[in-house]
């Protein structure tokens, strides 16, 4: 199936690999001959802060930033981050969420509480696909860093992208020596 227009918001914690994920989405848009813009966050927020990356695909893209209420997909590498950005989801959009918990410092210090029922809260209001991407990454790729690729696998499957197109986009963005483990992670997410 060929995609025509899609807005994907990738959210997570600095260091989880949101930049690589968005670049693979960018490559995919290129395969389909579509216009694409990606907006990234560099610098201070990457030090364990909340990070958000925008990927917009269409015949013609103007703003590189997805507006509130305009995301077809929110791909959350951490469940608290899914909660933080729900205003970006369009009516009828889907949240794909990794159930992994990474505690923010205010929770570690006791100044705030981590919501105990984050996924349940999300499911009350939105279409949600939740999965333990960390476990899948460890099992399929043997590496916790492959969480981002597992999540992409799920996204591409829901977008109706073929696995072979997804693999082509992946191969264009990762170093050859890491391609096999990343392909394993992609497939594990895709076939979930």
């Amino acid at each position: 199936m060929k995609i025509k227009e899609v807005n994907i918001l990738i959210v997570g914690v600095g260091g989880q690999g949101t930049l690589l994920a968005s670049r693979i989405i960018g490559k995919l848009a290129g395969l389909y001959g579509l216009d694409v813009k990606l907006s990234e966050v560099h610098g201070m927020a990457q030090r364990g802060g909340s990070v958000v990356t925008h990927a917009k695909i269409a015949e013609r893209v103007y703003s590189p930033v997805i507006g509130e209420g305009c995301a077809d997909f929110i791909v959350a590498f951490e469940k608290l981050e899914a909660l933080r950005y729900t205003q970006y989801l369009r009516d009828g959009g889907t949240i794909i969420v990794n159930t992994q918990e990474i505690l923010p410092m205010p929770v570690i210090t006791g100044a705030a509480e981590y919501p105990s029922d984050a996924v349940k809260t999300l499911k009350r209001s939105y279409a949600v696909i939740s999965t333990d991407a960390l476990a899948i990454a460890l099992k399929s790729a043997g590496n916790a860093k492959a969480v981002n690729i597992v999540m992409l696998g799920i996204l591409f499957s829901k977008m109706g992208v073929t696995l072979s197109d997804a693999e082509t986009a992946l191969a264009a963005c990762v170093k050859p020596e890491f391609l096999e483990i990343n392909k394993a992670a992609l497939k594990a997410g895709y076939t979930l």
Binding site: V13, G14, G15, M44, A45, Q46, R47, G48, G49, S50, E68, G69, L80, E81, L83, R84, Y85, T86, Q87, Y88, P104, M105, P106, V107, A112, E113, Y114, P115, T121, L122, S125
Partner: peptide, 17 residues
């Protein structure tokens, strides 16, 4: 109107690694 978030999420400021 700009859609606002109605879900609670504690802040996640950047930290020393």
């Amino acid at each position: 109107k700009i859609k606002t978030n109605t879900d609670y999420a504690p802040p996640r400021p950047p930290v020393l690694c």
